[in-house]
């Protein structure tokens, strides 16, 4: 998934600003990456390359830091963010089965984003409502006692929503001329 020319421009500009604010010290690598993620929502490979070049570090060093910390994400956040809880209670109640269902349904792995950037899938550790295990947080809604059937339901709701929006758009387009 290579970013388009517009996006590349956006990434370059964002990294440029962050570097200007924070300098090019080796010690500010983490703040720089945080700054880039704040602006872009994720760490694109182009941004990591650019940071490495500015700080005169091997690219793989920047990639290593980006993959070491959980706070950094290498894939763009999807329109709908799905967070599957993998805390102790959810794990016991089959959280991994739920994660696998999402992975299968969306054909992506945990930590990835669908190519249309509609969904991103993450695992999180305990969202604080263990009595409702296994829990999934979809955007900001907590889904309780999720089963693989509910996984299909969640995705179906979004599909229907999208189809309705598309129909609406078409209708509006048809009315305009």
């Amino acid at each position: 998934m290579d970013p388009s020319a517009d996006e590349q421009e956006l990434i370059r500009a964002a990294v440029g600003t962050v570097l200007q604010d924070l300098g090019i010290e080796r010690a500010s690598l983490i703040p720089i990456l945080q700054g880039v993620q704040n602006r872009l929502g994720y760490l694109p490979s182009l941004a990591m390359r650019q940071v490495a070049e500015a700080l005169q570090l091997p690219e793989v060093e920047v990639f290593g830091v980006g993959t070491f910390y959980n706070q950094f994400r290498l894939n763009p956040p999807g329109k709908h963010q799905i967070k599957v809880c993998m805390g102790t209670a959810c794990h016991m109640m089959g959280g991994h089965i739920i994660l696998e269902s999402f992975e299968r349904r969306l054909s992506i792995l945990e930590g990835e984003t669908t190519p249309d950037r509609e969904y991103s899938l993450e695992r999180v550790a305990c969202v604080g409502c263990c009595a409702l295990a296994p829990v999934v947080v979809v955007d900001d809604n907590v889904e309780a006692r999720v089963s693989p059937i509910r996984v299909d339901g969640i995705l179906l709701t979004f599909d229907i929503e999208r189809q309705q929006e598309e129909r609406q758009e078409k209708r509006e387009e048809g009315r305009e001329p």
Partner: peptide, 25 residues
């Protein structure tokens, strides 16, 4: 790779059980 021949092609990535020596991406 990084100090002796100064290439910088490999490094540690990820952490914990996923830790490995790898290239960029």
């Amino acid at each position: 790779d990084q100090e002796q021949v100064k290439v910088g092609a490999i490094g540690f990535i990820r952490r914990g059980i996923g830790r490995k020596v790898a290239t960029f991406e």
